[in-house]
């Protein structure tokens, strides 16, 4: 059974979610665009990939975004917990490099519940935490026309609801997420090697 994307996206408030895959940054950008209030993006300072505000401008106004650069993952988690608990920030994105144990995952969930803020962890594939509310896989797809942002989103864990997969595209002009077609009808795509 294929469920409706609206049941699981926008991501549920007051919880922490996870996403992995080659289009994880795209997923995070769409999720940020649909969140309210200020945004915080936490990464470890040594990482080579930097988010580009001009690229993000197609999704949301980069002046809403704060970034935090930390020394290691412990600090990433500490900053995320602080920000989630505080509730001033509506949406927190964390880039993780090692798996969370149950205690760390649970602490993030409790903090998010307290502050009514949403968290999203960008994780390496296969390093999900058991405490997460939902886990998504996002991979880019080749679109039929140029300048596309076609992605395949698959929810592979959902604590409250069913799982499913959708092909989506971000409409930058209307600032809206379009569901393109269901997975079954997908003609020309193969999951990208991660």
């Amino acid at each position: 059974m294929i469920s409706d994307l609206n049941h699981c996206f926008p991501l549920r408030r007051g919880r922490v979610h996870e996403v992995f895959g080659a289009a994880a940054f795209g997923f995070a950008a769409v999720a940020c665009a649909q969140a309210r209030g200020d945004l915080l993006w936490i990464t470890e300072g040594w990482r080579a990939e930097r988010i580009n505000p001009l690229g993000l401008a197609a999704f949301f106004d980069p002046s809403r975004l704060l970034i935090a650069q930390t020394k290691d993952q412990t600090e990433v988690l500490a900053v995320a917990e602080e920000a989630l608990r505080d509730g001033c920030i509506g949406f927190v994105v964390l880039s993780l490099t090692r798996p969370l144990d149950l205690r760390e995952g649970r602490r993030l969930q409790l903090a998010a519940e307290k502050g009514r803020a949403t968290g999203l962890c960008l994780i390496p594939e296969g390093m999900g935490s058991n405490a997460t509310q939902s886990r998504w896989q996002a991979v880019p797809l080749l679109g039929a026309n140029a300048d596309s942002t076609l992605m395949r989103w698959q929810i592979i864990k959902n604590k409250e609801g069913t799982i499913g997969a959708w092909n989506v595209r971000w409409d930058a002009a209307a600032h809206r997420l379009d569901v393109v077609s269901t997975v079954a009808k997908r003609p020309c795509s193969a999951p990208a090697p991660a």
């Binding site: 990939e49 930097r50 580009n52 690229g55 106004d61």
Partner: peptide
């Protein structure tokens, strides 16, 4: 303070690296 005025005349990538 946050500043407005973000204009990308051409599509720009979401992630930049060296």
């Amino acid at each position: 303070a946050p500043e407005a005025g973000w204009v990308a005349l051409r599509p720009r990538p979401l992630v930049l690296f060296a």
